[in-house]
Write a protein that binds this DNA or RNA. Structure first.
Length: 211
DNA sequence: TCGTCGATCATCT
DNA sequence: GATGATCGACGAG
């Protein structure tokens, strides 16, 4: 019933997550304002997504999917709505939301959150018992550390209410509050303005490099 | 406040 | 053997 589903999407309210059939660049913007929830060691921690980056499939030189399926990126080529978690620089975990159809290899990297629940737990995990709360989740490695996300979460069903790592609706952010800039920390396809930030958020990872 | 640099290791060539 | 979607520490201004 594709037409019926489309009607539901057009009437999207703050209580809905972005439609998984959206194009990755649109999905990356719609993801801002959603809540990322992690339930680990019996603790619920969550934050509102304030910064994302879109990575397209085989057409995007900066994407892990550019060279096709490997052991590491297999989750990227799986069904949409799953988590793709990978180890960066051998040290930090980073989490993506897989988008589009299985086999495409597109995903949206979550780069920063505004902490909502479990701040004390996040401080403990990051060994930051004092200081500004922004430092806890501003950066893809930091937010995974704060929420306790590890490689064990690779492939988690983010759209399932039973999943220990999942997305939940939070706020609907109007398009004029979202800024597009070039992506960060990459050496290829650096000109693509596929990073999206909540314009007035104090929690984004790097100050504006807008072009 | 900003820039630089080393740590660290799974993955890829 | 080289690379990298990062981070934290440290020094300069």
């Amino acid at each position: 019933m594709p037409n019926r589903n489309r009607k539901i999407e057009q009437r999207s309210s703050p209580t809905l997550l972005p439609d998984l059939r959206l194009a990755t660049l649109v999905f990356a913007q719609k993801l801002i304002g959603c809540r990322l929830v992690a339930l680990h060691q019996g603790m619920r921690c969550s934050g509102m997504i304030v910064e994302t980056e879109a990575y397209l499939g085989s057409e995007d030189e900066a994407s892990h999917a550019y060279r096709g399926v490997t052991t590491r990126n297999a989750a990227m080529f799986g069904p949409p709505g799953r988590a793709y978690v990978y180890l960066s620089y051998g040290v930090h975990c980073c989490v993506n939301v897989v988008t589009e159809s299985a086999g495409v290899g597109a995903a949206v990297l979550i780069r920063a959150l505004e902490p909502l629940e479990g701040v004390a737990e996040m401080r403990g995990r990051r060994n930051r018992h004092s200081g500004p709360v922004q430092i806890l989740t501003s950066g893809p490695g930091r937010l995974c550390s704060a929420l306790g996300i590890t490689l064990a979460d690779n492939g988690a069903e983010l759209y399932s209410a039973e999943s220990t790592l999942r997305l939940e609706p939070c706020l609907e952010i109007p398009a004029h509050r979202i800024t597009a800039t070039t992506r960060i920390g990459i050496s290829r396809a650096t000109e693509k303005p596929w990073r999206f930030c909540l314009s007035d958020s104090r929690f984004i990872s790097v100050r504006s490099r807008q072009r």
